[in-house]
Design a protein around this nucleic acid. Structure first.
Length: 525
DNA sequence: ATAGGGTTAG
């Protein structure tokens, strides 16, 4: 940078210069010149430097803070915000204490950032205590921050209490509570808050729809989507359409998803990175892998998520070799693969029992890409080994993994044991599953069916008693399909659908077509 | 003048 420029520019010009700088190197240069030019005595200039570096290099920001003779509340707020974005979140409260020792009064902006540094419920309670103690410092930002963080730590009752007792609230506070309720399974409460809201934004609708999706209430999500389109008050925004598209993929709602696709084409959004990736995922999940490939080919910009979605789509649609080849292409000329890409390519190996290839990829992942395998990667390996009958090796891997096995790991292992009739190992895995997931009736049923198959009736009775004793909810299994925008849900032995007779006729035809099918009983009725 | 909140693909 030209020294004379800095020397002669006025303060607003200086600030504009600072806003333009995009790297820490540029900032350090400006900082050095600020000192040489004697501009460091203007506190708002150093404050601006500090605020900028706090979000990209917190240690550098801390050196600026240490060099500042009289740090202001602005400096502390920036520092606390900076720490909230790092892994050293506990420094937030330490800085706050230091600030209070220096007799600096917090202001309305201090607490939302301080709340962000709370990494557990006890630190949140501590901060909330401070807020109450100081009094007179609340506003809508603070209310929503408290609601979000309480619900994040599963203290939804406290979140509701903050909402009810707080006079400062607006559409954001209501939306925060809606999200909190949905994330804690309180669907009715979320609906109540929405119904009673004085005004609603596009984000409020988004929160409702994604909340329904997370709670697997897909019909309600689609209902809301239609309600929103009909009311014409709020326009569906990007994230809302992305959420709906995810929901469509999850339930295989081809028609609704296709309508969104057409709408995206009309709005010239179809080449958008996120929409493109979402569409690839959606069409893959609906089984239209050609359409997914077509979108992938025509996307002008693709990132690691786009490639991962495509590899996963191919892998789950039986195009395993294409998936693995696409992954190889990616390592040659695409973005750097991440942990999710590796899950996708391991799934591709899984569906073709490519055990050696999978081990090789797992090694590559660590050595070449520096990615530590997570529980999902081990899960893929266990699944792969178990399916291919290498149950001993699968068991050894479960014991050697650096983390405790979860339901998915034992589930894969059990599945492999059942395929290969390894009764002793299956029993072991089944018991682990029941203990990990004691409320899930399905876990008991799998083990009970296995006992029944081998005629070990005392095992069946024992499990039945255990279920009664533990009051396990035995909601029957269900399936669903979307036709013309309506999701039809079917339970096992369900006779409630108005066209149940027609459905049975179709099922009969299908069963006759697949003569070699070894499925044990009807798919769903 | 500088600092804060809600939805979001894999």
């Amino acid at each position: 940078m030209n020294r004379t420029i800095v020397n002669t520019i006025s303060n607003p010009q200086y600030l504009r210069l600072l806003q333009k700088c995009s790297t820490m190197d540029q900032l350090k240069q400006i900082h050095a010149q600020t000192i040489t030019m004697g501009l460091a005595r203007f506190t708002y200039i150093t404050s601006k430097l500090l605020a900028f570096s706090a979000t990209s290099d917190i240690d550098y920001a801390h050196t600026i803070l240490n060099q500042t003779s009289m740090p202001t509340i602005f400096d502390y707020n920036s520092m606390i915000l900076g720490y909230s974005k790092t892994s050293k979140q506990e420094f937030g409260i330490l800085l706050y204490t230091q600030m209070r020792n220096n007799r600096i009064q917090p202001n309305a902006r201090t607490f939302p950032v301080l709340i962000k540094t709370c990494n557990c419920i006890s630190s949140l309670l501590q901060v909330h205590g401070q807020i109450v103690k100081l009094g007179n410092i609340s506003d809508v930002y603070l209310t929503s921050s408290l609601i979000c963080t309480y619900s994040h730590y599963k203290a939804i009752k406290s979140a509701i209490q903050v909402f009810r007792e707080n006079p400062y609230k607006n559409v954001v506070c209501c939306t925060s509570l809606i999200t909190g309720c949905f994330n804690n399974g309180l669907v009715d409460e979320a609906c109540k808050v929405f119904d009673e809201m004085p005004e609603r934004s596009d984000v409020s609708y988004s929160a409702m729809i994604s909340g329904f999706v997370r709670n697997e209430l897909f019909n309600k999500a689609f209902d809301f989507f239609h309600r929103l389109k009909n009311c014409n008050l709020v326009k569906p925004n990007r994230s809302l359409l992305l959420t709906i598209l995810t929901a469509c993929g999850t339930v295989g709602a081809l028609n609704i998803g296709q309508n969104i696709h057409h709408q995206l084409i009309e709005d010239s959004f179809c080449f958008d990175l996120q929409f493109g990736t979402s569409l690839i995922d959606f069409y893959s999940k609906c089984g239209d892998i050609e359409k997914a490939e077509d979108i992938f080919t025509n996307m002008p910009f693709k990132d690691v998520a786009t490639w991962s979605a495509m590899v996963m789509g191919l892998a789950t649609n039986g195009k395993n070799e294409t998936a693995i080849n696409l992954f190889e292409d990616m390592t040659q000329k695409g973005p750097v693969p991440n942990d999710i890409t590796f899950i996708a390519v391991l799934v591709a190996c899984n569906h073709k029992s490519l055990v050696t290839k999978a081990w090789c990829l797992l090694g590559k992942m660590k050595k070449l890409f520096g990615i530590q395998p997570g529980i999902e990667h081990y899960g893929c390996m266990v699944d792969l080994l178990a399916r291919s009958g290498q149950l001993k090796r699968a068991e050894i891997l479960i014991n050697l993994m650096p983390m405790a096995p979860d339901e998915a790991i034992w589930g894969s292992f059990l599945h492999g044991c059942l395929i290969h009739s390894e009764i002793f190992l299956a029993e072991k895995a089944g018991k682990c599953l029941i203990e990990l997931d004691p409320c899930n009736s399905g876990r008991y049923v799998v083990l009970a069916n296995m006992y029944a198959d081998i005629g070990k009736w005392e095992g069946v009775i024992g499990l039945r008693n255990l279920m009664v004793e533990r009051k396990v909810d035995t909601t029957p299994g269900w399936s669903f399909i979307e036709v013309d925008g309506i999701v039809h849900k079917f339970f096992v032995n369900d006779q409630c659908h108005p066209r149940v007779k027609d459905l049975h006729k179709v099922l009969q035809v299908l069963n006759n077509v697949s003569i070699n099918q070894t499925a044990s009983g009807p798919l769903c009725t």
